[in-house]
């Protein structure tokens, strides 16, 4: 161990190796209470992680050097450094955790010989995602693990794993946690999962349509929590209005239950929710193959809806919105009852 702490300038690979050795030590020494020796190892580890960060991000004197970054990345993923770092993160102090989070985030984007080797590593160690996601249940770790998680799901294969895992159901609860920071972080991850990789998302939504939208409606859109409803209706609009999800959209706007929920959101006192709800509601009205029961509901509520839209304005002039509104009004006004 003695030769480890020479103050000679070290290569990026050496810094990685030393970090790994220290992590191994910290992991093993988990049971003993803080001894002097352990403290020293900890502070050494903190310094190494900070050095990794400054190689990857540069510092006030120098910009990052691509070659050094590549060497570092290569060495980092050659062995199980990422797993060690993630598992030991709760033992590090706050500063070291933040540095480690930034290092892990940055590594996801580093290419070695024009390959994202982080993606390969994660595919082989996909169970690490389970650790990161369960971080939302731990107040101290949630924001660090959450930030790492969001970087990892930039890789399509990783996002697909998370989407199809049992964890997906837990997000409906995570985004309503009382701690706003953690809830907002989980919401950001949830949104990323459902919007970043178009084809994967479309496939996921088609396969899991029934349970996903049942949960989405009852837990999020009908939540008693304003913030949850507000974020959920916005995200729903983003999802349904995305061209790649057109099949899901068509299915969604053919359901009378969904229409009922959206019409309730249109009646909210919150302007922001009303406006977002309108962007989803317009899809029901614009649908050229409206099922009979949808037409029936729209006709039954025609005068109420038209009255609502008459006073419906955004705070700032928005021509697109006005055009959409005019079309919806025309569409509803011209509806004729159909024989069932």
């Amino acid at each position: 161990m003695k030769g480890l702490f020479k103050s000679k300038p070290r290569t990026p690979a050496e810094v990685v190796r030393q970090t790994r050795d220290l992590l191994l030590y910290v992991q093993r020494a988990s049971d003993t209470r803080e001894s002097k020796r352990e403290e020293k190892q900890m502070s050494e580890l903190g310094k190494n992680i900070r050095e990794l960060k400054s190689i990857l991000y540069g510092n006030s004197e120098s910009e990052p050097v691509a070659e050094a970054c590549a060497k570092l990345t290569d060495e980092f993923f050659k062995e199980n450094t990422l797993r060690l770092l993630i598992l030991c993160l709760p033992k590090l102090n706050l500063e070291a955790r933040k540095d480690a989070t930034q290092v892990v985030a940055n590594l996801q984007r580093q290419q070695v010989q024009s390959r994202l080797i982080a993606s390969d590593y994660l595919e082989a160690n996909i169970d690490l995602m389970d650790v990161l996601i369960s971080g939302y249940e731990n107040t101290d770790m949630a924001l660090h693990y959450g930030a790492m998680l969001r970087e990892c799901i930039r890789h399509q294969s990783v996002a697909r794993y998370v989407l199809e895992s049992q964890h997906m159901k837990k997000f409906f609860d995570y985004i309503q946690l009382p701690n706003f920071d953690i809830a907002a972080d989980a919401a950001a991850t949830f949104k990323e999962l459902l919007t970043r990789h178009k084809s994967t998302v479309a496939e996921f939504l088609s396969k899991n349509y029934d349970w996903f939208f049942a949960e989405y409606n009852s837990k999020l859109l009908e939540s008693s929590n304003y913030i949850t409803r507000r974020q959920a209706i916005k995200l729903l609009g983003d999802i349904l209005l995305d061209r790649s999800n057109s099949a899901v959209m068509t299915r969604y706007v053919s359901s009378r239950d969904n229409l009922r929920i959206l019409m309730n959101l249109l009646r909210e006192t919150s302007k922001s929710i009303q406006i977002e709800a309108f962007h989803v509601f317009k899809l029901f009205a614009a649908n050229q193959n409206k099922p009979t029961d949808i037409i029936g509901i729209l006709i039954a509520n025609r005068s109420k809806l038209l009255r609502l839209f008459a006073d419906f304005k955004t705070d700032k002039e928005d021509q697109e919105f006005e055009a959409d509104k005019a079309q919806v009004v025309r569409e509803i006004a011209s509806l004729e009852p159909r024989e069932p």
């Binding site: 706050l94 955790r97 924001l143």
Partner: peptide, 10 residues
């Protein structure tokens, strides 16, 4: 719109 904030800084 809003967004989660970064981990707290000391």
């Amino acid at each position: 719109w809003w967004q989660s904030k970064p981990p707290p800084l000391s």
